[in-house]
Design a protein around this nucleic acid. Sequence first.
DNA 1: AAGAACAAGTTGCATCTGCAACGAACTGGA
DNA 2: TCCAGTTCGTTGCAGATGCAACTTGTTCTT
Lengths: 154, 154
Amino acid sequence: MTDPADDFDLQDFLPYLLNQAAEATSRGFQAAYRDRYGFTRTQWRVMANLGKFGAMTARDICAISHIEKTKVSRAVAALEQAGLLSRAPSATDRRAELLSLTGQGRAVFAELGGLALAFDRQLRAVLGTEDAERLVSLLRRLAQAVPPGAGAED
Amino acid sequence: MTDPADDFDLQDFLPYLLNQAAEATSRGFQAAYRDRYGFTRTQWRVMANLGKFGAMTARDICAISHIEKTKVSRAVAALEQAGLLSRAPSATDRRAELLSLTGQGRAVFAELGGLALAFDRQLRAVLGTEDAERLVSLLRRLAQAVPPGAGAED
DNA sequence: AAGAACAAGTTGCATCTGCAACGAACTGGA
DNA sequence: TCCAGTTCGTTGCAGATGCAACTTGTTCTT
């Protein structure tokens, strides 16, 4: 039986390869914050966005980073609990809250952001500057071509 | 304060970009098996390996696909439960079991493998043949450069 | 040939996640 | 103004996962 599926090889399947690379690199960096603080990947990402862009609402974080709102909500709660983030009422919408890093939160972000930058440089060095840029461009094209379904991420 | 972390932007962070692309594409294909059968990504991958390579032990699946043994164990249990996979004692090691798809399992793999192939072609079409190949090569280089830590994946 | 070290799989537990449902607040049209 | 329809954010719940501990069987060392 000449089945079309006979031609299928998981090792050549793009979603699989992407996951492999994503997991390998994420894990590599995860070691940096996991051992030091007990962060979740989501928590780290929320912090990274607030660190980079300053105060914003949970909704903004969702929109920018394509993280599901449930995850953001829980990450925010955890970061607040840890004293790294604080909430303030939004001036324009009483449902929303303006989120921002506390002094301690900014300090942690400064440290982890530095580590992240170094880690990223290491990865790019593996590929070479030119190929690294190519990869970034290809990934963006792919992610954009497959619009985030209902949910978003992970 | 000129902090090194100020230069950090999550949107340019390779692990982040890889995750975005991986999630978007995985989700896209997940719709195919999720709605039809209730598969987990891991279950689908285990099945894909058995479908492609025939009978092997859980350990082999771990080695080939870099999936953690716990996940494989549970996926195998679920697939067996669903009647898609069967176990047979290994001739050479009484701890291990030879896993293989049942007739029904092969039928399901034939269907999903076909869908996967079609989905992959769609993705590659977005990038163009040449860039798709480039991407595959870059991803392999990256994954190889960052050896899977203790665990493995997801 | 016996015991220590090691490998294959499974399981308990704590955590993370997705989805759907929810309360509260906002918005637009009649 | 008032009500239907949306949106922000949180929570309940069921399922998936990682890690460590464990059972059983194998291999290595001496």
